[in-house]
């Protein structure tokens, strides 16, 4: 329950912090921290326009997308203190496949509009999420290897960091998780949320035809997804620091905030990759994840 609460807090400050960071770095004054939510609130009150080409798929997709992310959040524990609302052996599989379900629906809802742009976005989203899947699973495997357990809570509880190599391992994993988050959420190196040209968009172009309540749901889901991955990173980093319960909760939020600021920094100083380099960039993450997996062998001294 506590992790759910912390993730909600994280999601609340996340989009605002990113835009503040970006604004400050480009010398602007920047909006208030809750500005994104004010926009979303306005969207939630608005009416909707549906394309006449669409069918029920288009209408249920945003709902299922949100439900899938909420369902996935239920499984995330709070460090080594409290397990998620639902925890069982192999819950991270459910986590990954649940997210995939939401993505599947979003992709076909983009195809449902019959627009060339949205088809293009859907195609890219499908390709990138397919390519990033192995990286995520290899990172998870390495955590399972290191801890010897197969549920989120036990994995993070029995995750011990002893020497330099372990810290390097944590660093690589955190790096990978950040990159995976950015790809899953269609942020900068792969996709630029601020671009104005449909041909270079990925996620934004998929939701071109969504409006009103649906668009609001999609944006909230985006923030939740960010906070969810931020929580995973927090879970990886906090237990080895051996903090108390309250301090851990604080650290959790601080890590979310730091994560948001990092994303803001990265987006300010980095250009979007050329489309043809994206697959190679994403696949490289799997390669690095493989190195992290080997690092586990060095740590556990199996060799």
């Amino acid at each position: 329950m506590i992790s759910l609460l912390l993730i909600f807090i994280g999601a609340l400050i996340f989009p605002g912090l990113i835009s503040i960071t970006k604004a400050k770095l480009s010398g602007k004054k920047g909006p208030g921290i809750f500005q994104p939510y004010k926009d979303i609130l306005r969207l939630l009150k608005k009416g909707s326009v549906y394309s006449s080409t669409t069918s029920f798929v288009f209408q249920v997709a945003p709902i299922i997308y949100m439900a899938s992310v909420l369902g996935a959040i239920l499984m995330i524990p709070f460090g080594n203190f409290k397990q998620g609302l639902i925890s069982f052996e192999g819950d991270f599989l459910m986590f990954a496949y649940m997210l995939a379900f939401g993505k599947f629906l979003m992709i076909i809802s983009a195809l449902d509009t019959g627009s060339g742009f949205e088809g293009m976005g859907a195609n890219r989203e499908a390709l990138y999420s397919m390519l990033v899947e192995p990286a995520f699973f290899i990172v998870l495997s390495s955590v399972v290897m290191l801890s010897g357990y197969t549920s989120f809570y036990e994995m993070f509880t029995h995750f011990h960091v002893e020497n330099y190599v372990s810290w390097l391992y944590v660093a690589i994993s955190v790096y990978l998780l950040i990159q995976i988050t950015l790809i899953e959420n269609s942020r900068l190196p792969v996709d630029d949320p601020k671009t104005h040209l449909e041909l270079t968009m990925v996620h934004e172009v998929m939701v071109l035809d969504n409006s009103g309540f649906d668009l609001g749901l999609i944006q909230i889901t985006g923030a939740l997804k960010f906070a969810m991955f931020g929580a995973l990173i927090g879970n990886l980093v906090i237990p080895p620091m051996h903090l108390g319960f309250e301090l851990s909760a604080l650290a959790f939020v601080v890590i979310q905030a730091l994560f948001a600021i990092t994303v803001g920094f990265m987006e300010s100083f980095r250009a979007r990759l050329k489309m043809i380099y994206n697959p190679q960039f994403i696949l490289t993450l799997s390669g690095i994840a493989l190195i992290a997996f080997f690092a586990v062998f060095f740590i556990t001294k199996t060799i």
Binding site: N163, Y164, V165, L168, Q280, T284, I288, I291, F294, A295
Partner: peptide, 19 residues
């Protein structure tokens, strides 16, 4: 400590392949 260097070394190989 030295495995740290080895891991980074392997990482540089990846970077070399892509640059």
């Amino acid at each position: 400590m030295s495995s740290l260097f080895v891991i980074i070394f392997l990482g540089t190989l990846f970077y070399l392949a892509l640059s």
